[in-house]
C-alpha cells in the first residue's frame, strides 16, 4: 500500500470518534502554528498503516498524531491549540 497519501479529516473520522466518543469532523480546530481555524473534516490527513497525522491545511504544521497498535491508541495533540465542539 502507498504511504503518506494526502487525504482529509473525513478519513480520520472513525479513529477520532473512537477516541473522543463524539463526532469530531464538524469541530473547529485551531492550529497552534499559524492560528488558522478549520473544521477537522477540512484539515489535511496523511494516513499510514498504523498512524494518522493531521496537518494544518494552511501552514502544514502537525496538529495531531494518532498511532494505534490495535490494543492501545496513542494521541499527540500538541499542535492543536483548541478544539471547539457543539454540544
Amino acid at each position: 500500500m502507498t504511504d503518506d497519501v494526502k487525504l482529509d479529516g473525513n478519513a480520520a473520522a472513525g479513529i477520532l470518534q473512537q477516541i473522543f466518543a463524539v463526532e469530531v469532523t464538524m469541530a473547529s480546530g485551531t492550529c497552534d502554528g499559524c492560528g488558522a481555524v478549520e473544521p477537522v473534516g477540512a484539515v489535511s490527513v496523511y494516513a499510514r498503516a498504523a498512524g494518522t497525522v493531521l496537518r494544518c491545511p494552511h501552514c502544514e504544521a502537525v496538529l495531531m498524531k494518532v498511532v494505534t497498535d490495535g490494543e492501545r491508541i496513542w494521541v499527540d495533540l500538541r499542535g492543536l491549540r483548541a478544539l471547539e465542539l457543539s454540544v
Binding site: 473525513n10 473520522a13 473512537q18 473534516g41
Partner: peptide, 9 residues
C-alpha cells in the same frame, strides 16, 4: 464494520 462516521461531508 463500524459507523456511520463523519459529519463534515
Amino acid at each position: 464494520l463500524r459507523g456511520p462516521v463523519g459529519g463534515y461531508f
